[in-house]
Design a protein around this nucleic acid. Structure first.
Lengths: 174, 174
DNA sequence: GAGCGCATGTAAAGGGTTACATGATTCT
DNA sequence: AGAATCATGTAACCCTTTACATGCGCTC
């Protein structure tokens, strides 16, 4: 249900086509909120039906550029401040951990090593993105500040998971 | 795709009916991996088709008790050690944060206060569960150790989000 | 016998991915 | 002329939720 508002948010930066948005979702937003082009095109039509966006001039290869309406901006604003009712995580590793007792001590230790390494590496990638922003390489202004805040969340979440895996290893050894 | 293995894992603790499993998913697993009864009954039939579980005796109100087969245990084991290909997060607050530049400084500060408080509170609930396990109130043994490890992940993830929201507030003020 | 909880399901709809399909423009 | 890329979509399938439906057994 958030792809809808993700598209609205990207369009709030300026007009874009479905193709543009699909590229941004693949390259920039992929790790945060993956979305493929069939879903994006469908959602854009539904957003247009609701009157939250409108299609402007048709470009070269029947390219349609969309723009947010006032209603769309209102809806985006509402979504940004709403508190999500469901506080559920749905992080697969958490579910998996419930069944660790099925593994032998050796298997578990090896598994947790790998998991910790993978998460540490993901955290490092987010940290690189953060450093790049801090060096001013991604520009300035409120929009880039929001990006900075988002990647910080990535750093902290994956660091937390890495730390957890290391703690779990000690816990299950001791 | 993990509900399948969640059910397999729960059944590895001992035989149970769809109704039992639905209750456990609602009460215990709700925050980690929500699942409603229609999905659970459907999945159980598919698991039985694959030969990973079998229905034993039919009880009172046409209650069906399922039990894991050897193949089922093998599959559970495989899943526990597999590394998930997709490393995507899909944490809605992360997506939301990308568009914080749409909010006024006051709105953002208030929002982040609320978010931090909500996450701190969720972390506290997980901490209570952890303390309860540590006091031995939930029993002993490998299975409860896995529960302890899982709730620790909850504590750390929600603490990380709470800390992030507080950091973001300072960041956007300064 | 009325009501509650046990127990299992079907149907419809929304969200999401993969595969298939097609045509227009630009580049070499 | 051929290849690559731009650009949009449809169809089929999986996962998940919500609403609807039904019948059994126990307790008061």
């Amino acid at each position: 249900m958030s792809l809808r508002h993700g598209l609205l948010g990207l369009l709030a930066e300026g007009p874009a086509s479905g193709y543009d948005l699909a590229r941004r979702f693949e390259k920039e937003l992929g790790p945060i909120w993956p979305a493929k082009h069939p879903q994006i095109y469908g959602e854009l039509n539904r957003l247009a039906d609701k009157g939250w966006i409108v299609a402007e001039a048709e470009g070269p290869r029947r390219r349609k550029e969309y723009r947010v309406t006032e209603d769309g901006r209102t809806e985006l604003h509402r979504w940004l401040l709403e508190k999500p009712a469901d506080q559920n995580a749905r992080v697969e590793p958490l579910l998996r951990a419930l069944f660790y007792w099925q593994l032998s001590p050796d298997e578990l230790a090896t598994h947790l090593d790998h998991e910790a390494a993978r998460w540490r590496e993901t955290a490092r990638l987010y940290q690189c993105a953060a450093d790049s922003v801090d060096r001013g390489e991604r520009g300035e202004g409120p929009r880039i500040n929001s990006v900075r805040i988002t990647v910080e969340a990535g750093v902290r979440l994956y660091e937390a998971l890495a730390g957890w895996a290391e703690w779990a290893k000690k816990q299950s050894e001791g």
